[in-house]
Write a protein that binds this DNA or RNA. Structure first.
Lengths: 179, 179
DNA sequence: CAGAATCGGTTGTCGCGACAACCATCATAA
DNA sequence: TTATGATGGTTGTCGCGACAACCGATTCTG
């Protein structure tokens, strides 16, 4: 356990990363709560569901893709169900399992929330970086996730199907916006 | 409000960043809780205090440097006081104010916790990146914090006094480790 | 030197996430 | 078949953070 201390340059990077870790989630959350009355996590749940076939996913799978524990997800979905953002129904093939499906209200909420959320992400992240830095950030993210999420459960979601859109769940294409 | 959608490269960066935001804090927290029975935030409070002159800081200042709201800090310090990690005493100059001082136990706890914490940071972050990426990360962090923390309250802490150590609060030098 | 506004901090309530305990279902093997 | 263990989920309790309400001390204003 004789790990060397961090040198100045490493420390510089770490301190900044730590600060971002502390501040950014709050900023994103605040905007969504204020403008759409949902959590960033709830937004993410809606987004993930909206990407799934039939807009339906088993709880376990949904938990994995959102990096939630099952208990946490269960609680969250219970609340979301109350607001009719999602629906829960037993899985026909496996009677232990439960499916979560994006409800109409959830889809609408997501669509309405998306633009503001994207704007916030742009404002706080993307637009503050050069194009080069954006790519560097992606590579750095890959490196970190190799440790944090070896299975790639979190990041694979959107990159899997190779589309120009992703986290932002597509309102803007498809039936919306009359594009 | 006609913010353009994220293009593929931007999305790639954002998704990864988001995943890191979700996973990294938990990883750090888990290690500290397990090995030293303190939160990452408590660790940080200890670290910040240990860097302050007299190992003492006013609550407001401590809150600013740890990016906590005052109520939150007050609660945290209450608990830490119970475990004798810190002490609170009224500020002589301003009788509204309260000072928080690092207690003996807190210092010891910090010193014992530091190596494992550093190792975790290395394992999950620093050692997964090239030297070049470490610098890139620092620059990216600067860019993001320009928005998130314009006053620089969070990141200024350690860079201000220009030392080779920083977040990691110095055990390792001084009387520890018998170096 | 009143009175008002402001500052510094604490306390109370509420909502969310972690963890453990629990129940039901499916798979496996004797 | 029935035990055994694993899988999929839910529920209960606890601890922490956000927000609002509050109080004493201080500064500002006339």
């Amino acid at each position: 356990m004789d790990t060397p201390w961090l040198d100045r340059r490493q420390l510089r990077a770490w301190i900044r990363l730590r600060a971002v870790l502390e501040l950014l989630p709050g900023a994103l959350d605040a905007q969504l709560r204020r403008d759409s009355d949902i959590t960033e996590f709830e937004y993410f749940v809606l987004a993930v569901l909206s990407e799934a076939p039939e807009r339906t996913l088993r709880m376990t799978e949904l938990a994995a893709r959102t990096n939630a524990t099952l208990p946490r997800l269960s609680h969250v979905v219970t609340r979301m169900e109350r607001r009719e953002l999602v629906e829960r129904f037993p899985c026909p093939e496996d009677r232990r399992a439960t499916n979560a499906r994006l409800a109409r209200t959830g889809w609408d909420t997501l669509r309405r929330a998306a633009p503001g959320h994207v704007a916030t992400v742009r404002h706080n992240v993307i637009d503050t970086l050069t194009d080069e830095q954006v790519d560097q950030l992606a590579d750095i993210g890959d490196a970190l996730l190799a440790r944090l999420d070896p299975a790639g459960t979190m990041s694979a979601i959107y990159t899997r199907h190779d589309r120009p859109d992703g986290e932002e769940p597509d309102p803007g294409r498809g039936s919306a916006d009359g594009a």
